[in-house]
């Protein structure tokens, strides 16, 4: 297969996925799709209502993904969650804070928090310092987040985005404060750490389901179904390839 053919095939796949996403979004607008229970997302929703009631703060850590790399998708999924959580908790005396390890991501996080703040139209002025850049390397980022978890009257932590093993330091810091953590990452080393260190980590593509489970809109639910359809296609292709190889046709 030439690179031109492979490129065209990729483009067709993207176009088909975009079409499916659009059509399913329209469908789910009228007929919402029931989703299976993922307890971590239930806990996020519960945590958001809790912080408004008890006057504490929600902390969302978005990792240090560079927006020019594919790992930015996990941070963008995290931003969809920030938007929703920001709207729910902006009414509280202590609005949520986000911490990031990438300057471009920090700008987006600040803007998302501001948009969520304006959406609920509170009297309180928006504080840009609620979106914080804590360090430019993964470890300095972790070192900067740890005091925020300790000193900012945080009652719940959502850690979602691109991390390395340094995510273990954030979990440990939250554990010391006895504050619950809901965590998800796109990288395998971080997932391994989260599996050992947290009660209910979100594994693999569950990270990208955050929007659908926090009712960000029908497009988020549609994108889950598109993911499932594509996954079955990949499974069929893998099985088909293995079968053809066994039959000596490949």
């Amino acid at each position: 297969m030439t690179s031109q053919t492979a490129g065209l095939l990729g483009l067709v796949l993207v176009l088909v996925a975009a079409l499916a996403l659009t059509l399913l979004s329209l469908l789910f607008k009228r007929f919402p799709l029931p989703l299976r229970n993922i307890s971590a997302f239930l806990r996020i929703r519960r945590a958001a209502s809790l912080v408004v009631e008890d006057g504490t703060r929600l902390h969302v850590s978005l990792g240090s993904a560079n927006l020019l790399t594919p790992s930015s998708a996990s941070a963008l999924a995290g931003l969809a969650l920030v938007r929703h959580l920001g709207e729910v908790t902006s009414l509280s005396d202590h609005p949520p804070i986000t911490t990031t390890g990438s300057p471009t991501l920090n700008l987006l996080a600040q803007d998302t928090l501001r948009t969520a703040h304006e959406a609920v139209a509170t009297e309180q002025p928006f504080d840009m310092n609620n979106g914080r850049l804590t360090g430019l390397t993964p470890l300095s980022y972790a070192a900067g987040v740890m005091p925020a978890i300790r000193d900012e009257n945080i009652s719940n932590n959502v850690i979602i985005g691109s991390f390395g093993p340094e995510v273990g330091l954030l979990i440990e810091s939250a554990d010391r404060q006895k504050t619950p953590v809901i965590a998800a990452s796109d990288s395998l080393p971080a997932q391994a750490v989260l599996y050992a260190a947290t009660q209910e980590p979100l594994i693999g593509e569950e990270l990208f389901a955050a929007g659908a489970y926090t009712q960000a809109g029908p497009a988020h639910t549609a994108s889950l179904l598109v993911q499932d359809i594509l996954r079955w296609l990949v499974i069929l292709a893998l099985l088909g390839g293995a079968f053809l190889k066994m039959a000596g046709l490949l």
């Binding site: 996403l21 998708a73 948009t115 693999g204 996954r231």
Partner: peptide, 25 residues
Amino acid sequence: ILIGVALGTLTTGLRILLGVDRPYG
């Protein structure tokens, strides 16, 4: 796991290209 993450990346990118998610303001 990585294939799952890649598919999630694709649909997240598509949501932004379709203007459903607008993290840029």
